[in-house]
């Protein structure tokens, strides 16, 4: 029985991060005794929700062998597009759709530059990162604004902590399904695993990459909207590189490789939740944010080491 659980833990990439999460919850529950409570779980989801949505899209881009650094800036831009559309008289739901279309456009640009001009996506999205940040600051004048909606609507859009994590879970489940059960997902893995081979097999590799960049950007925009309704403010300085790196960290500790071809959306969701647990647990126990960063850094290196070596074992067929 134990060895079977061990076997599953080794075979399923999501399992190790899930176990780590459970141990952390137990630890913080014993040391703080209020960790598992309605209120605190609400707090925890605030740390994890938007990051998990960003990570879900990033995993798709990572699996197809690329990287998107611009998501933190799209996260800040998209709510402003929604806000200005609304100011111009567009009803809220359509304003949200326009904001998401703006985000998708950024993804399209990232994808086109990367595939057609053959730039590494690290460079492309480093460029759009600064570009979009500047653009957001210009159109906003650098000042935050308030989203205009009814309280009920805001609650559904992430104002309520359980709705927030609900969005993250639903999005992760849908994308995990897309990744493992559809042609799009299969071709995403193929393109990241063997680019030349996928081209030879007739897969439209550029189209796959562009579509994943667009998906990733759109989700980044959506994550920005969830957070602006949660906080009740649209801030041009929200998100940025901090949340982008948290999303990539979530993906990586969840079992996604930066080399392409391998990844899991559910793992990234667990990754984001584990980072949320750490942040929340440290806050409750009065540990400083600096210590959190040190632990996060260590966690990334340790989990990556384990992932890489487990992967070698898997390839040799030992597991």
């Amino acid at each position: 029985m134990l060895s079977r659980i061990g076997g599953i833990a080794l075979r399923r990439r999501e399992a190790s991060i899930f176990v780590a999460g459970c141990l952390l919850v137990l630890y913080f529950q014993f040391t703080t005794s209020v960790f598992v409570s309605y209120d605190n779980i609400g707090t925890l989801t605030q740390y994890a929700g938007a990051t998990a949505v960003l990570a879900a899209g990033e995993v798709m881009v990572l699996i197809c062998g690329e990287l998107d650094l611009s998501i933190g800036m799209v996260y800040a831009l998209s709510p402003f597009l929604m806000y200005f559309a609304q100011q111009a008289g567009v009803p809220l739901v359509f304003a949200i759709i326009l904001g998401l279309m703006g985000a998708a456009l950024v993804g399209l640009i990232n994808g086109l530059i990367t595939t057609l001009l053959k730039l590494p996506s690290f460079v492309t999205t480093l460029g759009t990162l600064f570009l979009i940040n500047g653009f957001t600051l210009v159109i906003s004048g650098g000042f935050p604004v308030q989203p205009e909606s009814s309280q009920a609507f805001a609650n559904v859009m992430g104002g309520n902590a359980y709705f927030l994590i609900g969005w993250a879970i639903v999005i992760a489940l849908i994308l995990q399904y897309v990744l493992t059960q559809t042609r799009w997902g299969l071709h995403t893995i193929a393109v990241g695993g063997n680019l030349d081979g996928s081209t030879e097999a007739g897969i439209k590799v550029k189209s796959i990459k562009i579509r994943n960049f667009m998906l990733c950007s759109t989700l980044a925009g959506f994550a920005g909207m969830l957070d602006c309704f949660r906080i009740g403010s649209i801030d041009p300085l929200a998100g940025g590189n901090e949340i982008m790196f948290m999303a990539i960290a979530s993906a990586v500790i969840g079992g996604t490789l930066l080399t392409g071809g391998v990844g899991t959306i559910i793992g990234a969701l667990f990754g984001a939740i584990v980072l949320g647990i750490l942040k929340d647990g440290f806050t409750l126990s009065g540990v400083s944010a600096y210590t959190f960063d040190m632990i996060l850094g260590g966690a990334i290196i340790v989990t990556m080491t384990i992932n890489v070596h487990l992967n070698r074992l898997r390839e040799r067929g030992r597991v």
Binding site: R183, L186, H187, I189, A190, G193, D196, A201, I203
Partner: peptide, 30 residues
Amino acid sequence: QDLALVSELNVYHNMFLQREPVRGGFLGIL
């Protein structure tokens, strides 16, 4: 010559790569 196989995918996904039988039309469910 280089076989055009994807190491990360299983045998049957490789054997039907780019001509996968699907259900559900445009959704492309494998």
